[in-house]
Design a protein around this nucleic acid. Structure first.
Lengths: 268, 268
DNA sequence: CGTTCGGTTGAAAGTCTTCAAGGAGGGTGG
DNA sequence: CCACCCTCCTTGAAGACTTTCAACCGAACG
């Protein structure tokens, strides 16, 4: 497991892959509805929950699984509402948000392929989950899933491991939200994305990706960093004009000077 | 389980209890070193991990347990360092902090009696754990504890439950850190403490305690809320002069007008 | 009785937000 | 194919909030 993980775990080129996958996924859709062999071709077969399950556990899980496809902006879970399902993300990105009555909003988690969506042992979620891009899910009716978890400790163990990783991440984020300046926030976020958008291959994390696409809009980025979109935009400009990064079309980022970016992420 | 829990779970009069307990605890210290009956008199016997274990699990756990007593300010776990033990808090409060190289610090978690300290499945903690008051721990050598967890799924299940609660709490805190004003932050913190400093009895949470002591110094409060001590102090003064609260001697708080405090916690 | 430490208060400075206006890209319809 | 519109992003200037710097207070302690 990655320690001192910074920010969300972003699995192998999550953001860019969406468009590419989306077509072929339509075919997989049907195949996957037929249990056992369905998982074999799954993109996250060896990274999600599934990778850590015994064949029987996997089979049981697959029995209750259903593929779902969501457009960007579509809601997955809502606070207040009854939670009716759990899911594993196959492609795309999901944001978890909390908000105040007057509309101020904060992204409290960002989930990527292989991550698990849902809050076990609670009837109602405390946050709102929404697709930030087109998203493909492998979802499970909550009742059946919980029954399964009780029978197969392996699933719970893996959920636990993921929960702890999310906890690490949210603590890192609390440090960012409470104590970093806007420039540090933006630089840190860029580095977090760059480090986690990893090339294919087992555990290729840790190295910086020099080129990648932002998984979030400016507005979502602001909500993730506890800033306004204007401030985010301004910090991008500073990093751009200092030669640390290059930005093409608001989403595509190239890191030109990693050291400079790294410095901006920690120094005032 | 409490949903929409706000802030840390503070178990029955956590902050005040410290001084009271500290004397009699000295005696228990020795008794508790002798396994099985030791737990019977334990203050957190029915709230901590222990409450959810089978008799055999509890016995096994007790076999490897050791009581420890720490003074305020003493370190429990350090980032970077090898984690050598896990522990359950018996009395006092423990803060989890993260900091940047230049000294800026953020409290990323606050733990109270019955809470669990330590990060399973990781060699090195990602945070620094420190007693904020005098603290009594029931601690377990990490190797033995991890072996035990593997053998007894009940323990892992309970740890999982606690981890999810901490995750809920840190997400609530991300909203506070990223989106609330200083007045809202302080008011929210006061309410969080008031709501969780609960009178004895099973599940007495939810109601506001009208009088209580702050579990943290101004400096720690600032580090918890992502503010400076001066700002915290100023917001206290505003709440004080608006008649929402009364403050005696910097630690003792009385809520005079709950509605007013509640309003300050959400409105700009 | 002086020192120290944690907390309070005031004034100035700085950072981030708010308000307002101006692009740039992508889709639609003429 | 181009004009138009819509959305998302950028930029500027003014204002608000929080921090910084500095002085002061008061209780605890030797």
């Amino acid at each position: 497991m990655q320690k001192n993980d910074f920010g969300p775990r972003i699995t192998r080129e999550a953001p860019r892959v969406n468009r590419i996958i989306s077509r072929e996924a339509a075919n997989r859709d049907r195949r996957c509805a037929e249990p056992p062999s369905a998982c074999d071709n799954c993109t996250v077969r060896w990274q999600a929950l599934c990778a850590h399950l015994s064949p029987t556990e996997l089979f049981a899980l697959n029995q209750i699984a259903r593929r779902r496809r969501l457009r960007a902006g579509q809601r997955i879970l809502s606070d207040q509402e009854q939670m009716e399902s759990f899911a594993v993300i196959i492609s795309g990105a999901v944001k978890l948000t909390k908000s105040l009555l007057d509309g101020r909003q904060q992204i409290v988690g960002l989930l990527f392929p292989a991550d698990f969506v849902g809050r076990p042992f609670a009837e109602r979620g405390s946050y709102h989950a929404e697709a930030t891009t087109e998203v493909e899910l492998c979802s499970f009716p909550s009742a059946a899933f919980e029954r399964l978890v009780q029978q197969h400790p392996g699933i719970e163990h893996e959920l636990f491991r993921q929960a702890l990783e999310q906890l690490d991440m949210s603590q890192e984020w609390m440090l960012l939200l409470g104590r970093k300046t806007s420039l540090e926030k933006v630089a840190s976020f860029l580095l977090a994305v760059a480090r986690h958008v990893r090339p294919p291959g087992p555990e290729g994390a840790g190295e910086l990706r020099m080129h990648f696409d932002m998984p979030l809009s400016r507005s979502d980025t602001a909500d993730y960093l506890g800033l306004t979109i204007e401030t985010v935009s301004r910090q991008f400009r500073i990093l751009k004009s200092s030669g640390a990064i290059r930005v093409s079309g608001a989403r595509s980022i190239t890191i030109l000077d990693p050291a400079k970016l790294e410095a901006a992420a920690t120094l005032k």
